[in-house]
């Protein structure tokens, strides 16, 4: 069980990618989930569907359209070129954008469920206690949605770590730039280096197990504490 320098590079790159994507998604998904949790607009259905699409689409489809959209001929590619910003496909930034899209539902949905579970009532109580909408969000919604945020972050992170198809389509196979663990494993198998493929794969299995076990334990703890009154 030996990790090569390239393996370690792939691990670091994956962790960097997943952390950045998670942070960005938490920020981006908070307003989306808030809106979806509380709106009565007819747009709610369509937007919900769009958010959930990465769940059912093959990652290759997602990667394919992203490639077209971000590529030199695509609208975003041309816009970026106009502002003299480098091309996104086959770069780390491109991978971040693609991963955010791919992991979006895994962050939006736990947040949306958490916001729905809070309901109107604590917010009304806060409003009668001279708490402004922003103040209510920070001091009432965020603490009450804590478990939702933890779930969202863990799922977003884990799902980004586990992606493969989108990476292959939009990121390629560039060491230190786009070569994440899943691609590295694929390379090892292609090169018949089963021993090294084993090491990395086993790490992924352990990682997934730990993450999910953690997630279920906090969900159980929250249920128990909610019934006992106090929250996390």
């Amino acid at each position: 069980m030996q990790l090569s320098a390239a393996d370690i590079e792939a691990i670091w790159l994956t962790l960097k990618l997943a952390s950045l994507v998670t942070v960005l998604l938490i920020i981006l998904c908070t307003p989306i989930a808030w809106w979806l949790a509380r709106t009565q607009s007819w747009l709610k259905g369509p937007i919900n569907a769009v958010v959930a699409m990465p769940l059912v689409l093959p990652p290759t489809v997602l990667g394919f359209y992203l490639l077209l959209f971000l590529g030199p001929e695509g609208p975003m590619g041309q816009l970026l070129a106009y502002f003299n910003i480098g091309s996104l496909p086959f770069s780390f930034s491109g991978l971040v954008v693609a991963s955010m899209l791919y992991s979006l539902p895994f962050v939006v949905q736990p947040l949306q469920n958490a916001f729905i579970a809070i309901g109107e009532r604590p917010l009304e109580a806060a409003a009668t206690l001279r708490s402004s909408p922003w103040n209510r969000f920070i001091y009432v919604v965020l603490p009450l949605a804590k478990t939702g945020y933890i779930s969202a972050a863990v799922l977003g992170f884990a799902h980004t770590v586990g992606e493969f198809g989108v990476v292959l389509m939009i990121g390629g196979n560039i060491p230190k730039e786009t070569k994440v663990i899943s691609v590295q494993i694929y390379d090892h198998v292609e090169a018949l280096e089963y021993g090294q493929a084993h090491t990395l794969s086993l790490l992924m299995v352990i990682f997934s197990f730990v993450v999910l076990a953690f997630l279920y334990s906090i969900q159980r703890r929250q249920k128990r504490q909610a019934s006992a009154g106090g929250l996390l």
Binding site: R121, P122, A125, A126, A127, T128, G229
Partner: peptide, 29 residues
């Protein structure tokens, strides 16, 4: 807006913040 009206409101089911102790509910106010 509600938060600018100088009212104290006691809800039928108390409606305390579940994530705060009684003391911290008072402190919030």
């Amino acid at each position: 807006a509600s938060h600018k009206r100088p009212v104290g409101y006691v809800f039928q089911d108390a409606n305390l913040f579940p994530h705060l102790t009684a003391q911290d509910n008072l402190r919030f106010s």
